[in-house]
Design a protein around this nucleic acid. Structure first.
Lengths: 134, 134
DNA sequence: CTGAATCCTAGAGGATACTG
DNA sequence: CAGTATCCTCTAGGATTCAG
């Protein structure tokens, strides 16, 4: 529609695309897992660290800070000694849960198709192992 | 539920999480835009290049190849001179459109909230400019 | 027209040590 | 407990050139 008559130029742009805006927010390595950990309610820093396999303090803090910066997560400090810090999804963050759940659902249902396609591609074009796999 | 009685150990894992599996597929810089370009049917290489603002041949080819590898896109070559190459979403690729549209919709509706949250965060914690913005 | 091959840089992310 | 601060590696992605 945009390119109906004359204007055949680029109509798809990183800066404008809604996909890209969301991906800019959730496409980091650990972001989805942190949201995942928060989807059932508030949780403390240490428990997130324990629940998310393989995450380091640095990456956890960095991820959770960016989420807070984006307004998806609320950080609440109780000034005890030692400190107690609770993280919670904001309403904005919760509104993202539904679309993300659908994505997760797609992954659960279809990932085996993806793996099959990869195996087939490699077999077809590479004969033996590797290619895009390694 | 998984960690009800005793097992308080990590129950969220990159290797298993459905989110992460999907993100592994669509979280590259140009992937979403390429799928976007394909959502209304087959399209040729050159037209994708023209429609997607700022993409280079290298990245277009790389992105589209990975999509093909994952079974989301079908590549069809007509051996004319010069060659004609058509790209089309496979049924698997089309099945991803719905969840992605919801993500895009979320972005369109809520991105301004995100920007507002960022501005507020920066104002609160940094007084002046930069922080995570730069 | 549709790529492949090189070279290069910025930044994401890991390992480790230290702290209020 | 909940982080900071450094240092270092690795690779996604850009620029450019060549080719069937």
């Amino acid at each position: 529609m945009t390119s109906s008559a004359k204007g055949k130029q680029s109509d798809i742009s990183l800066a404008v695309c809604g996909y890209s805006r969301v991906l800019e927010i959730i496409s980091n390595k650990w972001t989805a897992l942190v949201i995942y950990a928060l989807e059932n309610g508030s949780i403390r820093y240490g428990e997130m660290e324990r629940r998310i396999e393989g995450i380091s303090k640095k990456m956890l803090t960095q991820t959770v800070r960016k989420l807070e910066w984006n307004g998806l997560v609320q950080r609440h400090i109780t000034p005890t000694v030692p400190p107690t810090v609770e993280y919670t999804l904001t309403p904005l963050g919760e509104s993202l849960l539904q679309p993300m759940r659908e994505l997760r659902q797609w992954g659960r249902e279809n990932y085996w198709h993806v793996e099959a396609a990869r195996a087939n591609y490699d077999l077809t074009y590479c004969k033996e192992s590797q290619s895009l796999t390694n």
